[in-house]
Design a protein around this nucleic acid. Sequence first.
DNA 1: GTTGCTCATAAATCCAGCTTATGCCCTCAT
DNA 2: ATGAGGGCATAAGCTGGATTTATGAGCAAC
Lengths: 310, 310
Amino acid sequence: MSNEDGGSLRGPLAHRVPDLAALELLLAVARLGSLGRAARETGITQPAASGRIRSMERMLGVGLVERSPRGSRLTDAGVLVTDWARRIVEAAEAFDAGAQALRGQRDSRLRVAASMTIAEYLLPGWLVALRARRPGTAVTLLAGNSAAVAERLRAGEADLGFVEGLAAPAGLDGAVVGGDRLVVVTAPAHPWARRRAPIAAAELAATPLILRERGSGTRQVLDAALAAYGGLAEPLLELASTTAAKAAAVGGAGPSVLSELAIGEELASRRLVEIPFEDLDLHRSLRAVWPTGHRPTGPARDLLSLTQGP
Amino acid sequence: MSNEDGGSLRGPLAHRVPDLAALELLLAVARLGSLGRAARETGITQPAASGRIRSMERMLGVGLVERSPRGSRLTDAGVLVTDWARRIVEAAEAFDAGAQALRGQRDSRLRVAASMTIAEYLLPGWLVALRARRPGTAVTLLAGNSAAVAERLRAGEADLGFVEGLAAPAGLDGAVVGGDRLVVVTAPAHPWARRRAPIAAAELAATPLILRERGSGTRQVLDAALAAYGGLAEPLLELASTTAAKAAAVGGAGPSVLSELAIGEELASRRLVEIPFEDLDLHRSLRAVWPTGHRPTGPARDLLSLTQGP
DNA sequence: GTTGCTCATAAATCCAGCTTATGCCCTCAT
DNA sequence: ATGAGGGCATAAGCTGGATTTATGAGCAAC
């Protein structure tokens, strides 16, 4: 009776989750219906594919593929596993698209400057879509705050920018490509999570919160909105990154106010719960921006068209 | 000038994305501020950690951490990469939680039966949250259609079930834990994507669509809703899985009607666009269910409480 | 100055996974 | 029937990447 129970923290994730190559192979098998064909597509030999699938099945303790002399089909469990695997692969594709842009090729055809929030949460998805639609478009990404983005564009060092905020920076034209909203969140165990009535603005203002540091975009919006209600109370914690603030809130340190872009996953899995509030507008626009008069063309226009919802 | 451009399909993802162990290590470095501490936490030696980070930087072509004699901090690029990496790791955690449940331990304390859709898209997140709140709860997952879920519960072979549909199956009590909605989608290039007016129910009924096979939950809901408008036209394609239907729609084969749970990613990256329609209610409830009178207790109650939104 | 933390480098080792080379099974067509 | 072809499994040998141990060097605090 060692610690071989169905528990959780018995080792690094990498020992319990197959590597990307194996997951991609599984997706190929699901799509092509044959280990051999999947192997060929993946650029390995058939025995290698056979072995990889087998070791994946051993690792998970579940049969994934039903082999037959005329092909392979997924088992019921295999269908589920394959769908879960697809999530990992999609996240990896976003990572890859982002990382490639970060690398900053010399011969880049499209130079994008974006605020941190957008670069973190939205841009990778857009880059994946752009890659699907216009393969071979080399993209460079520069991340910085709104002022830095504006500066790059004015200096001609970027072709297209993305910023969040209430208005487009001076000297730049723009188009709204989406919205963001700050939400009040707590861990599910916090008393606020059991309230039925919305939090009043004044109560929110009077409560010590977990916040980003003064100067961050999130903090500025909140400061402005609560100014009419006496301004923010002394923060409970003041942290340098959205991630740190999120982690503190998840850990139950107290209520926080964060961008809904940053906490989708946490809300879905109920590591955080959203607390309704009233009398406040914590929306902000996400804008694509470009130098006044220089309407985007070429690759920049391609990317822009991806971001504009129907 | 080989194909070493900033393109896309120059090899398997695994060659351009670090493995899970490296990504976890990066997250640990970000959290702990030191390669050595991160190494210890990850269960490897300091030189191994140093090498892993270095090879990751070489792979991505970007510096990620700034080393100093009294610790390491992330670079600007490192912050972005770390956030993107976190997405992959979270997807891997969901995979792991799901896979472990699929394995079906003997000594399981909680046996869950769920419909495919819920097992695919929602359950892994719930299991991650459950693991965080009640570590050591061993969960077994059985996936099947609504009838199979009901059967398991009545036979006492499962403690808690999840089904989608308009009403709880006979003999079972239930509670709504969420909603699902069928949406009309096309590839962005499809003429419908440029329409401004919603699709009328009659027009939708008359159009050949990419659909799941007759008998699937999705198909049933759509059939029922369109019965009043002359019923569904002959399908354009009839496919055996949601994934296949999605792939066909993304490929531009035509319009499809799919669960919004299944296409979140595709909508966000605009590989698919949602087409508004009118005069139809394509909502369906997601319910937790249990044998009449046997209100869930223990681990089942823990899981149930996770799924009920505020 | 010494202790303690940080990280980098070097050399030896070890293991995991690949490829090549087979063999068996099944189906289909001749 | 009987061969041809596609599909998968097994065995053996090899290669390379990643790890560990051992050590050195830089900086800070006492």
